[in-house]
Design a protein around this nucleic acid. Structure first.
Lengths: 341, 341
DNA sequence: TTGTATGCGTTATCAC
DNA sequence: GTGATAACGCATACAA
């Protein structure tokens, strides 16, 4: 049987209350008493029982994280940021990996509505806006990454995807490209949608007509990227560059280019998004948009913890800067184009 | 305020006991009653309070995972395996990322001794054997990956590192290599030690003298691998192949080879261990030993859950097979050597 | 400065 | 089949 507070109290010849006070650093316990209690705690190896404490205090010092796939380095970076902030504030984290399955995500959500966490962070969630605000209405602190929710109880950190995408596409344009493919992610992903908007803005800023047939869906994964380029090629589309809404899809583009003998960047330039761990090891190294993933996780955890502790006045939304990393996959000016264009 | 079991009981005009019975699928409640209670639960959106349940039942249906770095793809794979098994058995997981810091690891361990988890899995832990068995003695189920502990309460899953390493080195020998460097990990890491043993066995099986000066430490990380090869080269050591105790160090070898203009595999062959996500994307692709990481996590979680539910008769230790993946980094026979050698 | 008594929300024991 | 009640281990209001 485990040691309980009453056992400590008895061997230290004080009341449970006093032991509790020592445990919680209450100032109103005499130094001598404190020392002797501390000694007994040490001797008996006493640890307060979490469930009892949680029940009494009505909080768990735990943050739940619902994430689509912990193996994706983008997600892992974010989780790491959350984790480190949480640790520094004495919070624990429970991870729920949904494997991109909406039913599993719902199931986890149900599982977490039992007050076993004080707050919840959703990374690239597929839940409806209504479901998300519902969590907040139930009294949970909610933070989101990878989507925008307009609700005064939902905290939010993201980067300006429109701006970053525009910058990336403008870089391609500056290299002399005019037929640029946009590879999109899940149809309803806000990230992907914003990047499309940036793509269109870049084109229009340089008087290049937007051609919907150059937009192809790749579902954010490698085979999706592969198939998308295959489809475009099969349709006879002509293009000299690809802006992929994430690096993962770019991997598929590399693969099919390799199969078709189309060289990167000479015959096809490409830029991804995420600065995935593999991107710099590819041949050629992949240009990409680097988002401050770790910081996003860290900041969101910070906001969430503040919120859980009563600070409701902080900004609901924080926007961080991402930056374009030009690597070899897009570093090849088309002939006849000077840098002044 | 949250809805409690008493609220459900009142609006359903039954006792809390009956509601509890319905919740826990007790057979001794009339179908009519069950239905009406279920309806009220649905209407009120009632969810049982975890802390109260945990306190009463003295268990949390939660597994704690202490891991050195969740970003390392090797660890992420294992965690994913654990997670999936846990989910299927209705367990949650809390992740503690120690960032390879022993003090943080200890701190987390303390944090988890409050009965907030029913069992604990340690991945590549740096704790002493005594500390680990201490956890088991406190009544926690304990599982370990990446190390062997002889204790009848500590569950264990790993691969035969000696055998796998021997096979890898023999592949290099078959390619005509005789001066083979072994890049070791942390000095006290069992994995690394076993791989060294396999390396030595392979040499001896082919009458190649073991030369301690070809063993160099790289601390399991990229810069360690880089520095190790630098040191060896500086000392004037001659070698045509490297067996690296993990892929991460091999990245450093790639880097310094690139700087020194030494081509892989023609001038230096290399094999790693882990089948890290990046390994196949490198140029040239990296030969490596693939461990069934996901399965290891999955199986260990399975064992742990069984153990927590009273099955103490299962084998304490399970050994899984790993396999050698020959890729381009080691695929270049030395001249004058026939495959019969 | 310390101690006593109560309640957090649930499940299990026992009685009806 | 169903219900009243005690207990899980802790922190706090109130008393001393």
């Amino acid at each position: 049987m485990d040691i309980k507070i009453i056992d400590v109290a008895r061997t230290a010849k004080v009341s449970p209350t006093t032991v509790s006070r020592v445990l919680n650093n209450s100032p109103l316990v005499k130094q001598r008493t404190r020392d002797s209690v501390l000694k007994v705690i040490e001797e008996l190896n006493y640890v307060p029982h979490a469930a009892a404490k949680n029940l009494r205090l009505q909080k768990t010092m735990t943050i739940g994280i619902i994430v689509s796939d912990i193996k994706v380095s983008y997600n892992a970076d974010i989780v790491k940021g959350i984790q480190n902030k949480a640790y520094s504030e004495k919070y624990k984290i429970v991870i729920c990996d949904t494997q991109n399955d909406m039913e599993i995500e719902r199931e986890y959500l149900r599982l977490l509505m039992d007050r076993s966490v004080d707050g919840l962070i959703l990374i690239a969630t597929m839940l409806t806006e209504q479901e998300i605000t519902g969590i907040a209405d139930r009294g949970y602190a909610v933070g989101i990454i990878g989507r925008s929710i307009e609700h005064d109880k939902v905290l939010n950190v993201h980067t300006d995807n429109v701006k970053a995408a525009k910058e990336a596409v403008e870089h391609l344009i500056a290299q002399g490209h005019r037929e640029i493919v946009f590879l999109s992610g899940y149809p309803n992903a806000k990230d992907s949608f914003d990047r499309l908007e940036g793509y269109i803005k870049a084109l229009s800023a340089h008087d290049i007509p937007f051609r919907p047939e150059l937009v192809e869906n790749g579902n954010f994964n490698k085979s999706g990227g592969y198939e998308a380029i295959k489809r475009l090629t099969f349709k006879g589309a002509l293009f000299t560059a690809v802006f992929s809404a994430n690096d993962e899809m770019a991997l598929g583009v590399y693969e099919i280019c390799h199969e078709m003998g189309r060289t990167i960047p000479e015959e096809l330039a490409i830029i991804g998004v995420d600065n995935d761990r593999v991107s710099k090891y590819l041949s050629p190294s992949l240009s990409t948009i680097d988002q401050p993933k770790y910081e996003m996780g860290f900041m969101l955890a910070d906001k969430l913890i503040r919120y859980m502790n009563g600070d409701f006045k902080q900004p609901r939304l924080t926007i961080l800067e991402s930056r374009l990393l030009i690597r070899r996959s897009s570093d090849y000016p088309r002939k006849g184009i000077s840098s002044s264009e």
